[in-house]
Write a protein that binds this DNA or RNA. Structure first.
Length: 259
DNA sequence: TTGATTGTTACCGG
DNA sequence: TCCGGTAACAATCA
């Protein structure tokens, strides 16, 4: 499975070698043939990630916009490329490597103004140097909505997904149902800093890791998180409560995260 | 075959 | 206008 937000940033980092290269772009299943032909044979000048969105910028052509959604995957391999596996929408082929993008929710080309509009509707991304966390705190501190819902709103903060939401709030001892306006600035800053660190670690390792003692790279998923998907709090042993917030399952330790 | 899922948007009703 | 609920879509695996 894809590792949420971090995979986009990780993908951007891993695809850096494409920058400056002329890419062959194809659509093995034909479902993105028109878009692929627009960027095929163009020089990739930059690869940009903002939140869960990935943008390949080309010289003299529109940008390729990818959002993996729940199910999308990105696979990188050395040349020569084998047969595409599964639902490959786009195959990007460079000099030494190729990248297959499977089953993304969004796979489209955008012109400059459309890219600008996309970036404008996203909140600050903890992984970007140009992020302005104060914009996120403005939104949160003025809202009655629960923090656990605000964290999932990509126009508030770009890049937090369902697992990071649960894990960040547990780590910072904030109850997901606390109204945004009741989150102190100090608590917000701690949350933001923690998000920066965890997301950076995730991007580096290409995996969601929220426990303190970083387990081996090949560890099981459940060993890399604290309470997500679990029944018992690792700190106090209390039962973990699970409920739906913002259409997704959130987990909370009512003892460690008092309201 | 069924259910669950690291995501998002559209639409409707109160 | 805001907010909650529901459905839809996506692909894969256990």
């Amino acid at each position: 499975m894809p590792e949420g937000h971090t995979i986009h940033r990780a993908a951007r980092d891993q695809h850096r070698m494409f920058t400056g290269q002329r890419l062959a772009v194809s659509s093995p299943q034909g479902r993105f043939a028109a878009g692929a032909s627009q960027v095929h044979g163009r020089v990739c000048v930059d690869i940009e990630a903002c939140g869960k969105h990935l943008l390949y910028h080309f010289k003299g052509a529109p940008s390729l916009h990818i959002h993996l959604g729940l199910f999308g995957r990105i696979r990188k391999g050395k040349m020569p490329a084998g047969e595409p596996r599964g639902e490959v929408r786009v195959r990007l082929v460079g000099e030494s490597h190729h990248v297959d993008i499977n089953g993304p929710t969004i796979c489209e080309t955008l012109n400059d103004s459309e890219v600008a509009a996309l970036l404008a509707r996203l909140g600050p991304d903890p992984l970007r140097d140009d992020a302005e966390p104060s914009l996120a705190y403005q939104r949160i501190s003025r809202s009655r909505m629960p923090v656990g819902q605000l964290l999932m709103d990509q126009s508030v903060i770009a890049g937090i997904g369902n697992i990071y939401r649960t894990e960040l709030l547990w780590r910072q001892r904030v109850h997901p149902e606390r109204p945004g306006r009741e989150l102190s600035e100090a608590s917000f800053e701690a949350l933001w800093r923690d998000a920066c660190n965890l997301l950076a670690l995730g991007a580096r390792r290409n995996a969601i890791i929220t426990v303190e003692n970083v387990p081996p790279a090949r560890s099981r998923y459940r060993e890399r998180v604290n309470i997500f998907g679990k029944t018992e709090c690792p700190d106090c042993g209390s039962a973990i409560r699970r409920f739906t917030l913002a259409t997704r399952k959130v987990y909370v330790c009512e003892h460690c995260q008092p309201r």
